[in-house]
């Protein structure tokens, strides 16, 4: 459905993305995961015909996004990174406007947005600018869906949204996927990766890996430790300086430590005691996407 082939793009002297290859299958919920400035928005804007690549080409439903940009514009449901609806128009007015702009009516495609719109219905007279963050996202999603797009493209839809709304939002995407829609979504939140069928990890304009979330975690074959209890920034520095430690970074309230192969927990414990570092527990942990990302990032 979507295919990026050897895509490069730079802004002046800054290389935004370089030699990107990605393929998204029909009916897939595909996640593009990486920190701010990794190149996610650049890729999405090229897919949605807003930017031109310096090199390589992008196919949308088999159509070239440069030559057939009008086809793409007619058939993509796009939700930009910043809230881009009219704040001074009401929920209803926004929805009607975008339906008409795409040559359809809210009535004709109401079934597509119904599960999402029912939550907005009580506020339909309210100005979009007065909605909560989560509600805004729902409205933006409705507006992106109202013309029955082939592919839904979402740029960081959950950024700046509370945890409950984020979960709800992903459930909505799952529902849309179940109806056969192809969804291409970017996010800086690693924990959202497991909600996708397949993900691509992106950093500094390069794809680190593309696989299913479980596939990516399965490739992680190091011992991972979690250090809990109150820790100081110096502890991380200390861990990083140990030759046994491949990687150490804060993870929630704890520190995740990736060991180089051939070393064990005992050695780290010994070293920590020698440096009289206080901690609660040091125990093996199950790796998650973030651990894989950190590992791929440092070994890249």
């Amino acid at each position: 459905m979507i295919e990026f082939s050897n895509i490069s793009k730079s802004y002046g002297s800054v290389q935004a993305v370089e030699h990107i290859n990605l393929k998204v299958e029909k009916g897939e919920l595909f996640g593009l995961i990486g920190p701010d400035g990794a190149g996610k928005t650049t890729l999405i804007r090229m897919l949605t015909t807003l930017l031109l690549a310096d090199e390589g080409n992008v196919l949308f439903s088999g159509k070239d996004v440069v030559k057939d940009y009008l086809y793409v514009r007619n058939n993509v449901g796009y939700m930009p990174g910043t809230f881009s609806l009219y704040q001074d128009l009401s929920v209803e007015e926004n929805l009607n406007f975008f339906a008409t702009a795409f040559g359809t009516t809210v009535k004709a495609n109401y079934h597509l947005i119904e599960p999402i719109y029912v939550q907005l219905e009580p506020f339909k007279k309210r100005r979009a600018g007065a909605l909560s963050g989560g509600m805004k996202q729902k409205l933006a999603l409705c507006c992106a869906l109202i013309h029955k797009p082939e592919i839904l493209v979402l740029d960081e839809p959950t950024t700046g949204v509370d945890a409950v709304s984020r979960k709800e939002f992903w459930e909505m995407l799952q529902g849309l996927k179940a109806e056969g829609l192809t969804i291409f979504v970017s996010t800086p939140y690693m924990d959202e990766a497991t909600m996708c069928d397949r993900i691509a990890l992106i950093q500094d304009g390069h794809i680190l890996d593309t696989d299913t979330p479980t596939g990516i975690v399965a490739k992680f074959n190091y011992t991972l430790l979690a250090l809990t209890g109150k820790y100081k920034q110096e502890t991380i520095e200390l861990l990083r300086s140990m030759e046994q430690v491949k990687n150490a970074f804060p993870f929630g309230d704890s520190i995740h430590i990736t060991l180089r192969n051939g070393y064990s927990v005992k050695e780290i414990e010994g070293l920590l005691q020698k440096n009289s570092v206080a901690y609660e527990k040091l125990e093996p942990a199950k790796p998650v996407i973030e651990d894989c990302f950190m590992d791929l990032m440092t070994s890249h």
Partner: peptide, 13 residues
């Protein structure tokens, strides 16, 4: 400035 032009561009308008 508000980003709505982005959506207008990615539409059949």
């Amino acid at each position: 400035e508000l980003g709505t032009m982005e959506i207008l561009l990615v539409s059949p308008l």
